[in-house]
Simulated scan of single mutants.
Amino acid sequence: MADHTLPHNHGEHLNTELLIDNIAKTEDFQIVADLFKVLGDNSRVRIFWLLCHCEECVINISSMMDMSSPAVSHHLRQLKSYGLITSRREGKEVYYKSADTNQAQLLHHMIEQVIKITCPEA
């Protein structure tokens, strides 16, 4: 790879080549942009935060959110498709909770930091 010289030298001592290599990976950044699109809906963020604190079925989530079950199911599908939540079936009931991943935990903490709320006591 050839050295990349920037038009302006501001005196920083950054590893410009590494930065340029990383920002060229547009597919990786698209994944993040798509995730932020999913989180661009207030209801999905609220449902995700709720599921960080409890495991619930669609009916109970609907009641807590004051939303229809089909609307909640739509939001749950989107959150699940990005790996933010998981589900398990018990008989006819499906229960949802936040995924046990670093990404989900970081998002949970970020939400609480941004809106200055704390986890409810168990």
Rank of each mutant, 00 (worst) to 15 (best):
M1A: 02
A2T: 09
A2E: 06
H4F: 00
T5F: 03
T5M: 00
H10N: 14
G11T: 01
H13L: 09
L14G: 11
N15V: 01
E17F: 06
L18I: 05
L19E: 04
L19Y: 04
N22P: 02
N22R: 07
I23H: 12
D28P: 04
Q30C: 05
I31H: 13
V32E: 10
V32M: 08
V32R: 14
L35D: 06
F36R: 10
F36Q: 07
D41C: 08
D41N: 11
N42L: 12
S43W: 08
V45T: 03
I47P: 05
F48T: 15
L50P: 00
C52Q: 08
H53T: 02
C54V: 15
E56Q: 12
C57A: 13
I59T: 06
I59Y: 06
N60T: 12
M64E: 06
D66L: 14
M67I: 01
M67G: 01
P70F: 05
A71G: 06
A71H: 11
H74P: 01
H75D: 11
R77G: 00
L84Y: 07
S87D: 09
E90C: 03
V94F: 04
K97W: 02
A99Q: 01
Q103T: 15
A104N: 00
H108E: 10
H108V: 00
H109G: 08
M110L: 15
E112N: 07
Q113R: 15
P120D: 08
